[in-house]
Each structure stands twice: as C-alpha cells, then as structure tokens.
Simulated scan of single mutants.
Amino acid sequence: MIEQDAKRVCDLISSRKQVGVRTIVAIAGPPASGKSTLAESVVQSLNAQQNSAVPLATLVPMDGYHLDNRVLEARGLLARKGAPETFDAVGFCNAIKKLQSAQQESFHPRFDRQMDLAIANAIAVHPDTRTVVVEGNYLLMDSDPWRTLADVYAATVFVSPTLEELEKRLQHRWIKHGFDPKTALQRAKTNDLPNAERVIRDSRKADLILNQNYTEFGMRYAF
C-alpha cells in the first residue's frame, strides 16, 4: 500500500513540476500518520528515476526545527514537545521559502529521535536538486506563519488515518521507548492526540488526501 501511495504522490509531483524554480512538495499529517515513511518512499522513488550523482529530490523534515529541550524546559513547554509552539516555525518557513529559488547549496537540521535533539546542518540540498519534499505535522495549518508557505508548495499531500488507529500507533511508539502500556497511552492522550486533532481540524485541504491505514506496526513513526 505504501508503494501505491508513493506512486500517486510521484505522479502528482510530475504534473506540478515548476519551471525556473524548485518544485517544493508538502507531505503533512498528524503524528504517527505515516507521513515520514511516505515522504522517504517518495524521495527514493524519484531518485531511482535518474543516474546522476546529484539527487533529483531531497527530503527536508520539519522535525529538525524542534526547539531545544533546554529552551522548552525554560518555557514550561517540554511536556508539550511536538505542539506547534515547540518549533522554530518562523525559521522553518523562511528556510523553505529560500529553497524555492536558492542557487547555492543549503543546509538544514535533522532531528535525531534517539538523542531527542536536532543536529544542525545535517541535511544538504544540492543547488541542482530540482525537487524538495517537505514533511511535517503543521505544513498545511491555516494560521501564521505556516500559511505563508501556501504559495510556495507546488503540490500538497495530507495523510490521516482514523484517530483510533493513531491512538494505537502513538501508544505503541511510547512502548518502544520503554514505557509500560498504561503510561504510554497516557502520554499519547495528553499530548500527541490533542496535537493530532489540531492538525486534522486546522489544516487546509490538500491536493491529495490519503486515508489508508498502513500495516499497523510495520513502519517508523514520527512526530
């Protein structure tokens, strides 16, 4: 199923290629929706279509723009990590806007889940890479600064299984991090699920909406 969805997204990108500027594609959805797995599959599929040493497409996840835990703790937001206010949203939006027309190589942060922090300059975007796939929860939020990217995206995709399925996935994710099932469910319900509901409620309609529920635990989950 993930292969079928990746093909649908690739076909959409092909129909929306921009001339003179980079093609910026947004893949959004609530936490644990499968958007990260889908975005990675799309980039791999696009790059498999050419033999150049320069990648045809590069993935830039929004998660790299998480505020540092020390900043969140000082602001009383550590328990809300993953909520919109726990990201450098303005910095992220400015970086994506620059990507559309940048002529030089640029570098972007990558979030390391095991270390629970962002690593600066870990993702390089080659100046000749013509497609950038952006992935994250809040890309289509109809509020500032997120909506300032509306005209930057050549194509938008929204991935959203049911809330019941998301609850199962979120609980499982916390179990994988060492929490017992009861504590894992509590963590999901107090932070992740409210974030998921907000994403579903407040996001603009995407060009392509994918509601499929991928194999329940056969995927990597992300914020």
Results as ranks from 00 to 15, higher is better:
residue 65 Y to K: 15
residue 41 S to Y: 12
residue 63 D to G: 09
residue 41 S to K: 15
residue 56 L to K: 00
residue 50 Q to G: 00
residue 33 S to Q: 06
residue 62 M to K: 08
residue 61 P to C: 07
residue 52 S to H: 10
residue 42 V to N: 13
residue 56 L to N: 00
residue 39 A to Y: 02
residue 66 H to L: 14
residue 36 S to L: 02
residue 49 Q to N: 03
residue 33 S to H: 08
residue 63 D to P: 12
residue 33 S to T: 11
residue 44 Q to L: 12
residue 62 M to C: 08
residue 42 V to C: 12
residue 46 L to K: 02
residue 65 Y to G: 10
residue 30 P to D: 03
residue 26 A to L: 12
residue 55 P to C: 07
residue 35 K to C: 10
residue 65 Y to Q: 14
residue 58 T to R: 15
residue 50 Q to V: 03
residue 29 G to Y: 08
residue 57 A to V: 03
residue 44 Q to C: 07
residue 57 A to G: 05
residue 53 A to P: 09
residue 61 P to Y: 03
residue 65 Y to S: 12
residue 63 D to K: 06
residue 32 A to V: 13
residue 25 V to P: 02
residue 43 V to W: 01
residue 30 P to K: 01
residue 33 S to F: 05
residue 56 L to Y: 04
residue 45 S to E: 12
residue 49 Q to T: 14
residue 42 V to R: 14
residue 33 S to I: 10
residue 50 Q to E: 07
residue 63 D to S: 09
residue 36 S to D: 01
residue 28 A to Y: 06
residue 46 L to E: 01
residue 52 S to V: 10
residue 53 A to W: 07
residue 30 P to C: 02
residue 33 S to Y: 07
residue 59 L to H: 11
residue 51 N to C: 07
residue 45 S to Y: 00
residue 51 N to A: 09
residue 64 G to N: 09
residue 43 V to P: 02
residue 30 P to V: 06
residue 46 L to R: 00
residue 43 V to F: 04
residue 60 V to F: 01
residue 53 A to R: 13
residue 65 Y to C: 11
residue 48 A to V: 00
residue 41 S to I: 05
residue 43 V to T: 12
residue 34 G to Q: 13
residue 49 Q to G: 01
residue 56 L to S: 00
residue 36 S to F: 01
residue 30 P to E: 05
residue 35 K to E: 04
residue 56 L to R: 04
residue 52 S to W: 09
residue 56 L to E: 05
residue 59 L to A: 06
residue 40 E to S: 13
residue 34 G to A: 08
residue 44 Q to Y: 06
